Computed example of a mutant assay.
Amino acid sequence: MTEFHTIEIVSEGILQFIRFNRSFYCILKHDNQISCKSILFFGASQLPVISLTEKKTVIFKNLINVFKNEMVSKDKLQLEMLQILLKRFLILCTRIYKNQNNYDMLDDVNVNIVREFNFLVEKYFNTKHLVSDYAEILNKSPKTIYNLFSKLDTKTPLHYIQERIMLEARRLLRYTDNSIKEIAYEIGFEDIQSFSRLFKKKEGVFPSEFKKNITSRTYCQLIGSN
Results as ranks from 00 to 15, higher is better:
11 S>E: 15
13 G>Y: 07
17 F>W: 11
19 R>V: 01
24 F>W: 05
28 L>W: 06
28 L>I: 08
33 Q>L: 13
34 I>L: 02
36 C>D: 07
44 A>I: 10
45 S>G: 11
45 S>V: 03
47 L>F: 15
48 P>C: 12
49 V>N: 13
51 S>W: 00
51 S>G: 01
56 K>E: 14
57 T>W: 08
60 F>P: 03
62 N>G: 10
64 I>L: 13
65 N>A: 07
67 F>N: 08
67 F>Y: 06
71 M>E: 15
75 D>Y: 00
78 Q>K: 10
82 L>F: 05
93 C>S: 04
94 T>D: 08
96 I>A: 04
100 Q>C: 08
101 N>K: 09
102 N>S: 11
104 D>P: 00
109 V>N: 14
120 L>E: 13
123 K>V: 03
125 F>Y: 15
129 H>G: 05
140 K>I: 01
140 K>N: 12
154 T>W: 08
159 H>I: 05
163 E>P: 05
163 E>M: 14
166 M>V: 06
168 E>K: 13
173 L>N: 01
176 T>K: 12
178 N>D: 12
181 K>S: 15
192 I>A: 14
193 Q>E: 07
198 L>P: 01
198 L>D: 04
201 K>G: 02
201 K>I: 01
202 K>R: 14
203 E>N: 10
205 V>W: 06
206 F>R: 09
216 S>K: 02
218 T>A: 00
225 S>H: 07
